Simulated scan of single mutants.
Amino acid sequence: MPAQSDLKPMLNAAEVNALMASVYPQLNDNFISYEAIDVFPGGCMVRLNADERHLRPGGTVSGPALFTLADIGGYVCVLSHAGPDALSVTVNLDINFMRKAEAGPIDGHCRILKLGKSLMVFDIDIVAGPDGHTVAHATGTYSIPRKRQDDAVK
């Protein structure tokens, strides 16, 4: 399924990272673990800089860390394309884990499948390792808050 083709971002990656740091500071605490790398029409690229904090026994990046990357991909897409309303929330997120991910950079290639007035549907391919193999794939939906009347006047 191709991504929705008529979309234009309102924010770039640096602007989304700054917004997330101000409204969601606990995401990265004192480390830059999750970040937007790129925003482009109809999608984004996010990264998990996985280190020992993200590993479970056996040296595998934990499922919750990869799940968070998938969710952050959706959040970056909705913030950058629907507008910088930090109150957008996840409605649904389904993930399939395919192979082991080890510490290091793990990238999420996210595309918006449908952006409406109240919902955004996306998918994300999470890749890692020197060969860039898919380690997980997720699909999700974000709820977009209604524009308040006082916001429309500004």
Rank of each mutant, 00 (worst) to 15 (best):
L7C: 11
M10C: 05
M10H: 08
L11S: 06
A13L: 07
A18R: 13
L19H: 15
S22A: 12
Y24F: 15
Q26E: 12
Q26R: 13
N28F: 11
F31G: 02
I32W: 00
Y34E: 07
E35R: 15
A36G: 08
D38Q: 15
D38G: 01
P41A: 00
P41G: 00
G42T: 00
C44F: 03
R47T: 06
L48K: 11
L55H: 11
R56M: 14
P57K: 13
G59D: 13
V61C: 08
S62Q: 14
S62H: 09
G63T: 09
A65T: 09
T68P: 00
G73K: 02
Y75L: 15
C77E: 06
C77H: 09
V78W: 04
V78S: 01
S80T: 09
S80G: 11
H81R: 00
A82K: 04
A82F: 05
A86P: 14
A86I: 09
A86E: 13
T90N: 06
L93D: 02
L93F: 04
N96W: 00
N96G: 05
M98Y: 06
M98I: 03
A103K: 11
A103P: 12
A103I: 05
G104M: 00
P105G: 15
P105S: 15
G108W: 02
H109D: 07
R111P: 01
K117H: 10
K117L: 07
L119S: 05
M120H: 09
D123I: 03
I124W: 05
D125S: 09
A128N: 03
G132H: 12
T134V: 15
A136T: 09
A136W: 03
Y142M: 15
S143N: 12
I144V: 15
